[in-house]
Design a protein around this nucleic acid. Structure first.
Lengths: 207, 207
DNA sequence: TCTATTTTACTTTTTAGTAAGTAAGTTATT
DNA sequence: AATAACTTACTTACTAAAAAGTAAAATAGA
């Protein structure tokens, strides 16, 4: 139906990822979209409404991607690598992820937005945990400690990795970090459990 | 000398860590300090001046702490653990670290602030790298890959770990994460490879 | 026509920043 | 020692711009 509504959310998210929710203004959006300020208020009476829509959109999109990745891959590293790829392309656009962006401003956000953000974080954490456990079960991932903790490790690598790499204006830094994270998950011996897919050798680009 | 100036920086940093630089306002500070808005402008003509003072203060304090830790410890894990402790106490105050806070808003910051922030990040990264290398040399730390990459791993654990743990209002989550990070650095008892993944030596309860 | 969508024109609040003034203290000159 | 000149550390009282939000009128599509 209303393409304006979708355009508003899309652009608003873009701006939030680039500059943060508190910097985002209705004027920013309306100018770039060639509409009036009040048109945004028609679709999203308050900024909170807009914020909620952004998080929900993000969650929906990520959930869809995750589901499709699970169908395409059996190797845990391949699956997790897809998520890293999403983060990598966000970084290409000189943005950070929604979790990092809103996480910083958390205390200034309305309760409903905080709750939505938690849901997004948990979606990713639980999904990562699941992939790690599946990988451990089918021999495509090796790690020490609990899957919950390791999921946190991977998430923090992404969330802060993207922030620091953007600061350094160095996408390679992020790539090195995620490659390292994946490599430490990789089963070391060639004599490990036979899996459906032959895992690639350790591809250490450059350190 | 001027205690007002120091109080302004101190409180401003507190507010930045809690709510972000763009949310911070002169009124916030002046009200809480019982002074007038213009008094802050006297010490810091522009918000950029204030922002720079905050980062510089942070960098000075961290650098001093780091130097003292290096004198107190020889074990790499003990030294790095001290830095984790600083982050842990920031989390106790329901704050995030300056890197995460300003990192998110990076594109909205004046160039000089971006440059100062980079210096802060590099100070920590280089220090971590140094401790890792010393640890590897004196046998108190074991890790795969380059020290540069591993320093990034530790930093991202801290920066995003504090953000996510605050979101979950769960300091234990941060503690578990950092404990895991330290444990994976710990040299395994000389008896080479344990064949089962259920070997002891992973302590997840207390530092 | 009826309804969804958008604009015009506005309000209120808050923002960073400024100009002018002042009281108290410091320094320099005699 | 006395006083004039100057500095420090503020306050009072403002400005201009931008923020989110609103009410009502106009427009467009079914």
């Amino acid at each position: 139906m209303s393409t304006t509504r979708d355009e508003i959310i899309r652009l608003a998210e873009e701006l939030v990822l680039a500059k943060g929710f508190n910097w985002l203004s209705y004027s920013d959006i309306s100018q770039k979209l060639g509409i009036k300020n009040a048109a945004i208020h028609y679709h999203f009476p308050t900024k909170e409404d807009l914020g909620l829509a952004i998080i929900e959109r993000d969650r929906t999109m990520i959930a869809e991607l995750m589901a499709s990745w699970e169908q395409q891959h059996t190797d845990a590293i391949d699956i997790i690598s897809e998520l890293f790829g999403v983060y990598s392309s966000i970084l290409q656009g000189c943005q950070v992820c929604l979790i990092g962006s809103l996480g910083t401003d958390m205390l200034t956000l309305p309760d409903a937005m905080q709750a939505e953000l938690k849901k997004l974080v948990n979606l990713i954490l639980i999904w990562l945990k699941k992939q790690l456990e599946k990988g451990r079960a089918n021999g495509t991932a090796v790690f020490e400690g609990s899957s919950t903790t390791h999921a946190m490790v991977l998430l923090t690598n992404m969330v802060a990795g993207i922030q620091i790499a953007r600061l350094h204006n160095n996408t390679k830094e992020f790539h090195t970090l995620t490659t390292h994270a994946l490599n430490s998950l990789r089963p070391k011996d060639a004599t490990s459990f036979p899996s459906s897919s032959t895992s690639k050798s350790i591809r250490t680009k450059k350190l």
